[in-house]
């Protein structure tokens, strides 16, 4: 920070903006919750929430929508972090919801779509009125127009035509009973900003974000780990190679990328040079159609 110039670095600016957003929500909305998956964006978000209320503890719980398709490293990380912070963890479980008949397994085994009703049910049950999510506008084009305070009706649905203009640093968090706001404190961050911040703050992330040896197979030009959720089909052969994950989602759908980046410095170098978006490179779910993300958001997804 170059104090003498009275100019913030880009990371300090982004941090100040996110901290402002956290405090604004805590001040204006009754029952916020932070969505915490153990992925890098939610880890960074958690760190910012911690900073926003320091030295007091963050005044809201965290929630994980658990698809049941987890990377064990990520689940361990989640539990460790929650214990360190002493925050309350709410788990909304998709396998549970399947058993209860709330949702049914999709033919392709993907739980991306069916996690939405599970999320919405948990929101209703706990009467959460604001949900912090780690989504960034640079991720996907339906997100480029997303607000920092994204208004959802009482079905949790996103209507792109019914969003509130956001001017200066003034956010409108007024809602009626049953409605909610999804809040995205990392809206203006890019994948590279997130990594620069992880480096600067020396934030730990699950080991799968760094290069490691893994048994994988190739499908649709992407590398999938051979694990209990995702087995090679006829004609797909497995092999061991050095990979890392750029995003961490449903373990049955998230692909790894070939990489030797085993330190945060090398990851930054790699991200700076890459020519593929993180979703395009690794998310089977977003490839379905041009508007896949837009459709899911309308149903109540993030």
């Amino acid at each position: 920070m170059t104090i003498h110039e009275y100019q913030l670095s880009q990371l300090d600016y982004l941090e100040a903006e996110a901290v402002h957003v956290f405090r604004e929500v805590a001040a204006e909305l009754e029952r916020p919750v932070l969505l915490f998956s153990g992925g890098k964006d939610s880890i960074v978000m958690l760190r910012l929430a911690e900073k926003a209320f320091w030295p007091a503890p963050m005044p809201f719980p965290v929630m994980h929508v658990d698809t049941g398709h987890n990377f064990p490293e990520v689940l361990e990380f989640r539990d460790r972090r929650v214990a360190e912070l002493g925050v309350n963890l709410v788990v909304a479980s998709v396998p549970d919801a399947i058993e209860r008949g709330l949702v049914a397994e999709e033919p392709n085994g993907s739980r991306n779509r069916i996690q939405t009703p599970v999320l919405l049910e948990a929101v209703e049950k706990h009467r959460f009125s604001a949900l912090f999510g780690g989504a960034r506008r640079d991720e996907e084009k339906a997100r480029a127009k997303e607000r920092v305070f994204s208004f959802r009706d009482d079905f949790g649905q996103w209507d792109p035509k019914n969003q509130r203009p956001e001017l200066w640093n003034l956010y409108n968090g007024r809602i009626h009973l049953g409605e909610s706001i999804r809040v995205f404190p990392l809206s203006n961050w890019t994948e590279l900003d997130v990594w620069h911040y992880i480096q600067r703050e020396e934030i730990a992330v699950p080991s799968i974000y760094y290069a490691h040896q893994r048994e994988v197979f190739e499908r649709d030009g992407m590398l999938f780990a051979n694990n209990e959720f995702c087995r090679p089909r006829e004609g797909e052969t497995t092999f061991v190679t050095t990979v890392r994950y750029r995003t961490v989602g449903d373990a049955s759908l998230t692909a790894a990328v070939r990489s030797d980046a085993d330190t945060v410095e090398k990851v930054i170098e790699e991200v700076a040079a890459t020519r593929l978006t993180e979703r395009g490179a690794t998310r089977g779910d977003d490839r379905v159609s041009e508007a896949a993300m837009e459709d899911r958001k309308k149903e109540g997804y993030f």
């Binding site: 104090i3 913030l8 300090d12 600016y13 941090e15 640093n169």
Partner: peptide, 14 residues
Amino acid sequence: TADGPVGEAFAPMS
């Protein structure tokens, strides 16, 4: 701040 005291604060610092 969570990172320690600062000598001066100016816009848009939180």
